[in-house]
C-alpha cells in the first residue's frame, strides 16, 4: 500500500471583473478498486458553494464550484490523502497469442470498445491519416502488449519533451510535425497511432509521484490506457517510457484531453483575457 498526499493549486486571473462563475474541476482521484480516498479539502479565495458529483461515472468525482460573487482572480487549493494498492505491471500475463487474436477480432470486442478504437475527424486531437501512421512500425507478431510497448518506445524517441512549444489545442498530426511537446502531446500521438492499428486506447489524466528522471510531475500528468484481453485497461506512459504502476494516480479517462479538462466552466465577465497557473504536488507519506 502506498500513501500519498496530493495537492493541486490553481490561480486564474481575469482582465476585468467577473460576476459569478460555475466551474468544474477534474482533480479528485479516481475511485478504483482498492483505493482509499480520505479528507478531500477544497478551498477558494472567493466565497461560493462547492460539491462533489459522481453523476457521470461513479468512480469519477467532479468538483463543482458555484459563486455569485464578484472577483478578478480565483485561487483554488485542493488537497486529499490517498492509499493506493501496490501494482507491479509486469506481474500480469498475456493470453496465448492465438486466443488473444480471436478475442480482438470478435465483433463483440470491437463494438464494445469501438468508441476508444475509432478515429474520427470530429475529434481531431488524436486523428492521424494512414500516411502519418505509416511513419511508425507496428509489429506483426507477438502479444498485443509487446506490440504496444514497441510502439510506445518509437513515440518516446520521436518526440522531445519541451514545454511551451505546444498548447492544449495541439493535435497529434502537429505533434508529429514538431516532434516536440509535453505529456498530453505524447499521449495524443500515441493514441492516434494505437487507434490507427485497431487498439482500444483512452486518454488518462492524473497525478504522478515523481521518481528519478520522470517528467510531468509538477503538472497534472497524462498517459494512455490500452484495453488488453484478460488484463483489462493497462496504463502506459509514452512520455516516460514506462508501464504505469502505483505511482500513477488517475483522476479520469476519456477519448482525448477534452474529456479530462482539469478546469472548465462558465464565468460571467466582459474579460476576453485570462491567465491561469496550476501547480501539483505529490508527497509520499511513510
Amino acid at each position: 500500500m502506498q500513501h500519498y498526499k496530493l495537492e493541486y493549486k490553481a490561480n486564474n486571473a481575469y482582465a476585468s471583473q467577473v460576476w459569478g462563475a460555475y466551474l468544474k474541476f477534474l482533480i479528485h482521484p479516481y475511485a478504483a478498486l482498492g483505493v482509499q480516498i480520505n479528507n478531500p479539502v477544497f478551498s477558494t479565495n472567493v466565497e461560493g458553494d462547492w460539491w462533489i458529483s459522481n453523476a457521470r461515472q461513479k468512480e469519477v468525482s467532479e468538483i463543482y464550484f458555484k459563486s455569485t460573487n464578484k472577483f478578478t482572480s480565483l485561487e483554488v487549493s485542493y488537497s486529499v490523502q490517498i492509499y493506493v494498492p501496490d501494482l507491479n505491471p509486469f506481474e500480469r500475463l498475456s493470453l496465448p497469442v492465438d486466443q488473444e487474436k480471436n478475442i480482438l477480432s470478435s465483433p463483440d470486442w470491437i463494438i464494445d470498445n469501438y468508441k476508444f478504437i475509432h478515429l474520427t475527424k470530429l475529434r481531431p486531437k488524436t486523428f492521424l491519416s494512414p500516411q502519418e501512421n505509416a511513419n511508425f512500425q507496428w509489429l506483426n507478431e507477438g502479444n498485443l502488449l509487446d506490440k504496444i510497448i514497441a510502439l510506445r518506445d518509437q513515440v518516446h524517441s520521436t518526440v522531445e519533451f519541451i514545454s511551451g512549444v505546444t498548447t492544449t489545442n495541439t493535435e497529434a498530426s502537429e505533434v508529429l510535425n514538431l516532434r516536440k511537446g509535453v505529456c498530453q502531446d505524447f499521449t495524443h500521438l500515441f493514441l492516434g497511432l494505437l487507434r490507427s492499428n485497431g487498439v482500444a486506447a483512452r486518454y488518462a489524466s492524473g497525478y504522478l509521484h515523481e521518481g528519478e528522471g520522470t517528467r510531468g510531475a509538477s503538472q497534472l500528468h497524462a498517459w494512455v490506457e490500452c484495453h488488453i484481453p484478460e488484463m483489462g485497461w493497462v496504463g502506459i506512459d509514452p512520455t516516460n517510457k514506462l508501464l504505469c504502476d502505483h505511482n500513477y494516480v488517475k483522476i479520469c479517462h476519456g477519448y482525448d484531453y477534452d474529456d479530462c479538462l482539469p478546469v472548465s466552466g462558465v464565468v460571467n465577465s466582459s474579460a476576453n483575457k485570462q491567465s491561469s497557473e496550476h501547480q501539483v504536488n505529490v508527497q509520499q507519506i511513510q
Partner: peptide, 18 residues
C-alpha cells in the same frame, strides 16, 4: 458547445445523477 448561452451549466450532471 462551450459558447452556448442557451442552456444551463451543470444541467447534464443533474440529469445523469437522476
Amino acid at each position: 458547445n462551450p459558447n452556448s448561452v442557451l442552456g444551463t451549466p451543470g444541467l447534464m450532471s443533474a440529469y445523469l445523477a437522476g
